[in-house]
C-alpha cells in the first residue's frame, strides 16, 4: 500500500503521482488531506483501490474504468461522472449530479445526495443511503437508482429504462414516472445490494418507480402530456 499527501500540491500533480504509483505496481493508494480539491482520480482505467482520507471536490472518479474509489468525507458535484466501471463509495454526502451519466459500475453514497443524482445514467447501480434532492434519475436510460431515504421533487422524470427504488417518501414523481410492484427478484437484488455495501438504514419496503413510456414516442393527440412534460 502506498500513501501520499495532497498538502500544497495542485490537482494535476496529485493525479500524476497517483498514476505514477499505479505504474510502479501499487494496487492500493491512500491519498491524505484532499481538502475538497476538484478532479481527483479522474480517468483512472485500471483495477486498483484509491482511498481519499477527507472530502473531495467536483468530478472525483469521473470517467474511471475499474478502480475502487473510497472517499472518507463528502464529495462535490459530478461524482464519478461518466464512469465506465468500478466502484465509488462516499462516506459523507454528495453534491449535485452524483453519478451523472454513468455507464456501469456502482456509486454508493452513505449520506445524502443533492439535486439531479443519477441523471441520465446509462447503466450501473447508484445507491443512496440517505435522501436525494430534486430531479434524481432524470432521463435515466438504463441501470438502477436506489434511494433508501426520501426522494426529492420531480423524481424519475422523463426516464427511459432506468429502474428506481425508494425506501422513504416518493410523493412528488416527475413526468411519466409510474409506481410499479417490485418483483421477488427485485427484493432479492435490493437485500443483497444493501448487505454487500453495508447499508445500515433499515428499509421495510421499497417502492419501485419506472417509466410509463408515454414520452417515448411523440403523438400529437397527446398534446396535454407533452405540454406538461416540456
Amino acid at each position: 500500500m502506498a500513501s501520499m499527501t495532497c498538502d500544497g500540491r495542485p490537482t494535476r500533480e496529485i493525479n500524476a503521482e497517483i498514476k505514477r504509483l499505479l505504474a510502479e505496481g501499487h494496487a492500493e493508494i491512500v491519498v491524505k488531506n484532499p481538502a475538497a480539491r476538484h478532479n481527483l482520480a479522474v480517468g483512472v482505467v485500471q483495477p486498483c483501490t484509491l482511498i481519499f482520507e477527507g472530502s473531495v471536490g467536483y468530478y472525483c472518479g469521473g470517467m474511471i474504468d475499474g478502480p475502487h474509489v473510497e472517499i472518507k468525507g463528502s464529495a462535490g458535484w459530478g461524482l464519478a461522472e461518466s464512469m465506465m466501471n468500478g466502484r465509488v463509495v462516499v462516506h459523507g454526502n454528495a453534491g449535485n449530479a452524483a453519478a451523472a451519466a454513468i455507464r456501469g459500475g456502482s456509486v454508493i453514497i452513505h449520506g445524502d445526495a443533492a439535486a439531479r443524482a443519477g441523471i441520465a445514467i446509462k447503466g450501473g447501480v447508484v445507491l443512496i443511503e440517505g435522501n436525494c434532492g430534486y430531479m434524481a434519475g432524470f432521463m435515466g436510460q438504463k441501470g438502477v437508482l436506489v434511494v433508501c431515504g426520501d426522494a426529492g421533487e420531480a423524481f424519475a422524470d422523463s426516464m427511459y429504462e432506468t429502474i428506481c427504488f425508494v425506501g422513504g417518501r416518493a410523493d412528488d414523481l416527475g413526468n411519466d414516472a409510474v409506481v410499479a410492484t417490485p418483483t421477488d427478484a427485485d427484493v432479492t437484488f435490493l437485500s443483497e445490494l444493501m448487505v454487500r455495501h453495508g447499508v445500515k438504514k433499515h428499509v421495510k419496503e421499497f417502492k419501485k418507480i419506472v417509466s410509463g413510456r408515454k414520452l417515448w414516442n411523440f403523438d400529437k393527440r397527446e398534446w396535454k402530456t407533452w405540454s406538461e412534460a416540456l
Binding site: 475538497a36 463528502s74 462535490g76 454526502n93 454528495a94 449520506g111 443533492a114 439535486a115 434532492g133 430534486y134
Partner: peptide, 8 residues
C-alpha cells in the same frame, strides 16, 4: 460534515 444545500 459538509452537505450541498437542496433546491429551494
Amino acid at each position: 460534515d459538509a452537505r450541498e444545500a437542496q433546491a429551494r
